[in-house]
Design a protein around this nucleic acid. Sequence first.
RNA 1: GUCUCCUUCGUCUAGUGGUUAGGACAACGGGUUUUCAUCCCGUCAACAGGGGUUCGACUCCCCUAGGAGAUGCCA
Length: 490
Amino acid sequence: MSVRVRYAPSPTGLQHIGGVRTALFNYFFARAMGGAFILRIEDTDRERYDPRALQDIYDTFDWLGISWDEGPRAGGRFGPYFQSERTELYRQYAEELVESGQGYYCFCTSERLEKLRESQAAKGQGYDRHCRDIPPEEARARRAKGEACVVRLKIPLEGSTSFYDHLIGTIERANRDINPDPVLLKSDGFPTYHLANVIDDHFMEITHILRAQEWIPSGPLHILLYDAFGWKPPEYCHLPMVMGEDGQKLSKRHGSTSLVEFRSGGYLPEAIINYVSLLGWSYDDSRQMFSKADLEKLFTLEKLNKAAAVFDYKKLEWFNGVYIRERSDGALQAELMPFLQRAGIAGTPASAEEEKLLFDALPIIKERLRFLTDAPEMVRFLFKDVPAYTAEELLPKKMGAEETAKILTEVKSLMFPADGKNFFDKTDEENEAAFRALAERLGTKLGSVLGPLRVAVTGSRVSPPLFESIRLVGKDKTAARIEAALRLLA
RNA sequence: GUCUCCUUCGUCUAGUGGUUAGGACAACGGGUUUUCAUCCCGUCAACAGGGGUUCGACUCCCCUAGGAGAUGCCA
């Protein structure tokens, strides 16, 4: 039987890096096994439902380049793939459980449950099974009269339930330790996660469940449900969790966690995919570069790690730099332009000159980028005026304004001589030789000659390579900027 | 509190009874270099603790400690 796996997000918030990791592992497992990857929307929480979250699911996976074989937009013969459109099915099976005596109607109000939770908080019990023994006829009658109720599962009081986890092995739990009689069908008629999940996984013929380890505690409960329906449970593989640097579950306070944040923060999808794949999974003792295509072939459950992994932004950052450098200039330009526009460096739409300027600048900024968001400030001096700088910044180490002005004046006449070839007519080698000769004549280092020039032309002591930058800035602007620097020193 | 899972460098990890415990990121040092970056070289750095089993344990078993997760009409 061929593998069928699913990613089943709840559209209540933005796609989170942890969820995406789970989705990716499911996707890669399906591809590597020649199986199917299904997307199912678990929109059973009407309170927290957010249509923007649904859009975010699509956007996130489109951006990552992950597609599903069945699900919303894709269709499939096991649809609908929105749980909100399958409520009749859940109701029917919940009813069946009540009929067979494996479930029961519970009329407890949320107020009572709240109070119960508070009073038992210290003991950590849970539901007191208050309605478990109401005679079926009476319960049916009360429900028929319109009394609000939920359907709960009767957890056996004795015995234990176990299941096999592909990664961890056999996990067993005494039935008395399972949360007493969880709600399967809410009073609004919608199912809870447990019911909908089990029913859908069964009818969608899911063969493997790859989900985070935080679900381990509900494993036995799900097994009990499969048993109650007389169904065969799928195989389980609980994935190690992703933690923040403090060892706690990764959350907002650790930094960016949603994919939209990573995207707007200038991360590349290749970097995210590569990095995240190495969180709880490895290939061998040395390889760490993996493309999506690689993972679609190489991924196996056998190489999964058991322990939770700490999310390391520094390493992701490194991957990001690597993938930025790996991009072709054309592809990178397309990726970068929106960031320049957002920063107000380039127009919207960008002019042909702006497009060309960015493209021409790529060779000198590419290896300096860690994030796409680094680009605007890096190329600002090419598109706009030089950012304001102080006379102080112009001065090389241990040099005064007067001396610096002298150097800069010499530099200017070297670059733009009254007669002979100017800077732009000569090769970089020729220019470098000339600057070196100048430095020697002035009895100083090359850096002290180029330093002031760098600040004058780029507005900063740190910039892309000077000669290339000057060529991109152009003759007139360069000359004008040197003049401006000279005025500042005077 | 109770239940469950986990435990190799700071971080991600390799390792399945005999290794100088390997790689990557980070950090630090050095080289290349007109700044920054890239690139190259190097250094620091780990088997949580205690018992067993065994000729021999990072590897197998037990205990302890620590960490995490679950304990909802959220998923």
